[in-house]
Design a protein around this nucleic acid. Structure first.
Length: 866
RNA sequence: GCCCCCGUGGCGGAAUUGGUAGACGCGCCUGACUCAAAAUCAGGUUUCCUCACGGAAGUGUUGGUUCGAGUCCGACCGGGGGCACCA
């Protein structure tokens, strides 16, 4: 072995090489971004991480994709901003404080240090000089200031309302943060509590947030659709019903919202939310109603519970007068299925044309009045048995009879408006954003409660309101509230004894403007410098997980608009382009005792069985799932980078799977990626000897083989550029494999060939630059360059080499392939036809028959029809 | 229940506006090198029939449009995601 070492090509030492180039980039501050109005900018951003402790493969995939774009755009001549920071506030830090007795700040900053070192080992083209952490007072002071501005502008307010309470985290949650009746972080079933909390008026922008989705044409359709559904715009009407008691005495009015005013003549009952003020008022002296309301509150909001929960009503001592039919009255119920948060918290029931109302009416024996008939008169329906909810023609409805549903809606709204009992309106499902959290490790809400003056903003000169460091986590609840002195302050208005707000902000606020802060991270006087911000923003390409489709992305779109309202920016949208990457998955392994095993704890036997490495006991192999600590199907990026190098990890992340789809992490895939790195280095090293010097002029004449090699290289430049622009990294990788195969199969026979070989190699090295930057930089140097590849421009494809002189055209007989012919490019149709008809395979297939018709698609196909 | 996306070899996946289905990679098979193994290199690899030449079928199922369908349209089957008493 030792004797052959001298003759064998040197193995690529990734460890040494990767460290070397990282140091060079660092030392030269290669990726530092400086505003330069003479150059076009490009802002690439990956969703910044929560400093949980260590990076995981999802991060590696996300940041690799962003880095490909950043390095590519840099090479294309853009002034690229590619920053990184830390979403550093949040509950895990408090949980760690309780479990490990470390301070949240200590824990967070230690994690940041670890993860920063890990990210650095990936060789990302980041401008670390702009690094920020949201838990830093120099960051959150601006957040507090903006909040005060929003408050002044009426975009922030306090309100008592029923809220979602997470019993595990001991805090409230916003509507978006409750998934299937459970807390988004803890998975605990959410409880209903009535509390006074801070809200941001996202609903002010409901219509704008919806309509502007259409203009976000570089966002995934899926995300736009999810946001549109979440905002949930419905056209309809609000109208008032007069209420009386059984004796006919006036009991005020009841306002309802409906999307089906056309079915008003089919109304047979009214239903109020258990939380409706009228319900509450009547409950005061009705113990039965009190019990009913309490019962409704107990029912959870989980999907399964709702589906099985029966429609329940409690008949109130009220009657509602039909606004269009004199003398007709309807019973009024409190009903468990009516939500206080939507519309007016009250409805009219039209059982003939609504599933839910039908179920309720059937249960309580209420009349079912048909007012819509199928447009096709032959169609038989029975609304007593099932509601008819399709489009149709209005019947039994006086002045609406014969109209189509849509026309009837317009006509009845016009009539109600004339009578001044109703009006056409638009209703949104979106609710205001509840931002108070009863936690310590978050940005303090800059407000002071004074018994005399009410809720008073903290004066700007007192910002930031800093978190106290000396807190304890020895009892449940909010440590800020338990702090002996922190909350006691004089009222800024009257000077009397007052109390600080002890709630902190939802951490989604921190991440709603960090991309703006990156444009001027050190500025003390404002969240950002206007000129810097206008140069860099919006983010041209944002990359992250689809799990933020609603939460973070909607909040950020709101915050940008709120900043616009207080004249901080003139911008509507923060993210011009969005890409949502897929998850990283891995097989799961279970030992015979039922415990989960790490991939590194198993091994494969010669017979192909999977066993536990320690005792060779059999292992059950489960399907591939998203990598998660709980199922132990995780692979540590550190270990992969140590064993195979960052370039291998990056290359594997980009190969095979389309970036928006889930990626299956396999050992075989990693070793495959690793072998290719080695092979590349070998191909380049072997070819290196006979090459002319860098910068040698192109020879006057080139062999056919050399021209073919050039064609392959230049076609790859064009194709790969298009692939990267379109986020088709897997196709880009495939093209690079093809070019590598072409180059390795090429043997130079003369000086011209060697020149073409150098050209192809240089092109190749520049093309792999965004994907495997260390190897590319190394080969660039070995090719004799003294400048950095990272500073070199993207190769330009010679248009003349992209088109072939001859093309292969398929010949079909009745649409079936018979063979191919070679034709000059853009050959005349009759030439193509003549050549095709002479093709022996076609002649044989024709069996002497005369073609009826010949279809010629130039440069593509000739189809002979008999 | 409503809305959206996706079904292509043993596997991940390619296929411009409808125009040679299976690029590229993984795996597997054969060969070279080696005492041997690893690594590497060369060739093969959709299925079926055939010694071969060659032929037939084939993109979840099924019907349609077309000279021509993985691609367009209808129905169905399967998988995934989002929303869900939203009036």
């Amino acid at each position: 072995m030792s004797s052959s070492a001298a003759s064998e090509p040197k193995r690529y030492n990734f460890r040494e090489t990767e460290a070397k180039w990282q140091k060079v980039w660092d030392g030269k501050q290669t990726f530092r971004a400086v505003m330069d109005k003479a150059r076009p900018k490009y802002y690439v951003l990956e969703m910044f991480p929560y400093p949980s402790g260590r990076i995981h493969m999802g991060h590696v995939r996300n940041y690799t994709q962003g880095d490909v774009i950043a390095r590519y755009k840099r090479a294309k001549g853009f002034n690229v901003l590619h920053p990184m920071g830390w979403d550093a506030f949040g509950l895990p830090a408090e949980n760690a404080a309780i479990e490990k007795k470390t301070h949240p700040k200590t824990w967070t900053y230690a994690n940041i240090a670890t993860m920063k070192a890990q990210l650095k080992s990936m060789g990302l083209s980041l401008d670390w000089s702009r690094e920020l952490a949201t838990c830093d007072p120099s960051y959150y002071r601006h957040e507090q200031k903006m909040f005060l501005d929003f408050w002044k502008a009426g975009l922030a307010y306090r309100r008592e309302a029923w809220v979602n309470w997470d019993p595990v985290d001991n805090t409230v949650l916003a509507n978006e943060q409750v998934i299937d009746g459970k807390g988004w972080r803890t998975g605990a079933t959410v409880e209903r509590r009535k509390l006074t909390q801070w809200n941001l008026k996202i609903t002010t922008f409901a219509d704008e947030l919806l309509s502007r989705l259409d203009t976000l044409d570089r966002w995934p359709e899926k995300v736009r659709l999810m946001q549109a559904n979440w905002i949930g715009k419905s056209r309809g009407a609000r109208l008032s019903f007069e209420l009386t008691d059984a004796s006919g005495a006036d009991r005020g009015k009841l306002e309802i919202f409906t999307t089906r005013p056309d079915t008003l003549f089919g109304a047979s009952f009214m239903a109020l939310s258990p939380e409706h003020p009228i319900t509450a008022q009547l409950a005061a002296d009705d113990p039965g109603l009190q019990r009913f309301v309490a019962e409704c509150r107990k029912t959870g909001t989980a999907a399964a519970e709702i589906e099985t929960a029966e429609k329940q009503g409690y008949k109130l001592p009220l009657l509602a007068k039909h606004p269009l039919v004199p003398g007709r009255t309807m019973p009024v119920y409190a009903a468990n299925f009516v939500l206080m948060e939507y519309g007016t918290g009250a409805i009219f029931g039209c059982p003939a044309h609504d599933e839910r109302d039908h179920e309720f009416a059937t249960k309580y024996g209420l009349p079912i009045l048909q007012v819509v008939a199928p447009a096709n008169a032959k169609e038989k329906i029975d609304v007593q048995a099932a509601p008819f909810v399709d489009d149709g023609v209005i019947v039994n409805s006086e002045f609406l009879n014969g109209l189509a549903v849509e026309d009837a809606k317009a006509k009845v709204i016009a009539r109600l408006e004339e009578m001044k009992v109703g009006t056409g309106t638009t209703q949104y499902r979106l609710r205001d954003w509840l931002v108070s959290r009863q936690r310590y490790w978050g940005c303090p809400i800059p407000a002071i409660h004074c018994e005399k003056c009410g809720v008073v903003p903290v004066p700007e000169k007192d910002l930031p309101v800093k978190l106290p460091d000396d807190v304890t986590f020895d009892r449940p609840g909010n440590p800020l509230d338990h702090h002996p002195t922190w909350k006691h302050v004089p009222c800024p208005t009257c000077g009397g004894a007052a109390r600080r707000e002890t709630d902190t902000f939802d951490t989604f606020i921190d991440s709603s403007w960090y991309f703006d802060r990156f444009t001027s991270p050190g500025l003390e006087t404002a969240p950002f410098d206007r000129a810097e911000n206008e140069y860099w923003m919006p983010v041209d390409q944002y990359i992250g997980g689809v799990e933020h489709a609603i939460l973070h992305l909607l909040y950020s779109r709101f915050w940008t608009r709120a900043m616009r309202e207080v004249q901080l920016t003139g911008r509507d949208e923060p993210f011009d382009g969005l890409f949502t990457q897929g998850m990283v998955c891995h097989e799961t392994y279970r030992a015979s005792d039922g415990t989960w095993l790490l991939p590194e704890e198993i091994e494969r036997t010669a017979g192909g069985n999977v066993v536990r490495a320690s005792d060779k006991s059999p292992v059950e192999v489960g399907r591939s799932e998203k990598m998660s600590k709980s199922k132990k199907n995780v692979v540590d990026p550190d270990q992969i980078i140590r064993d195979y190098g960052a370039d291998t990890a990056r290359w594997f992340m980009l190969s095979d799977s389309p970036p928006e789809r889930d990626l299956e992490w396999t050992e075989a895939g990693v070793t495959g990626a690793w072998r290719f790195q080695q092979r590349l280095h070998r191909i380049a090293s072997e070819a290196m000897n006979g090459l002319p010097a860098a910068g040698t002029a192109k020879p006057a004449a080139l062999s056919d083989a050399a021209t073919e090699l050039r064609r392959a290289a230049h076609k790859t430049v064009a194709g790969l550029s298009a692939d990267i622009e379109a986020f088709h990294f897997n196709k880009a990788v495939a093209r690079l494999y093809e070019l590598a195969n072409t180059i390795s199969g090429f043997a130079a026979k003369d000086a011209g060939d060697a020149w073409a070989q150098r050209e192809a190699l240089e092109i190749f090295v520049r093309l792999i630059g965004p994907m495997t930057p260390h190897l590319a930089e190394e080969l660039w140097q070995e090719l004799g360059h003294t400048t950095l590849l990272a500073d070199s421009p993207w190769p330009v494809a010679d248009a003349g080499l992209l088109v072939d002189d001859t093309v292969t055209v398929a010949v079909q007989l009745n649409g079936k392939l018979r063979g191919t012919i070679a034709l000059p490019k853009d050959a005349a149709k009759d030439v193509a036809e003549k050549t095709a008809l002479a093709l022996p395979e076609l002649v044989r297939g024709l069996e002497g028959k005369t073609p009826k018709r010949v279809i010629v698609v130039p440069n593509r196909i000739v189809n002979v029809v008999v």
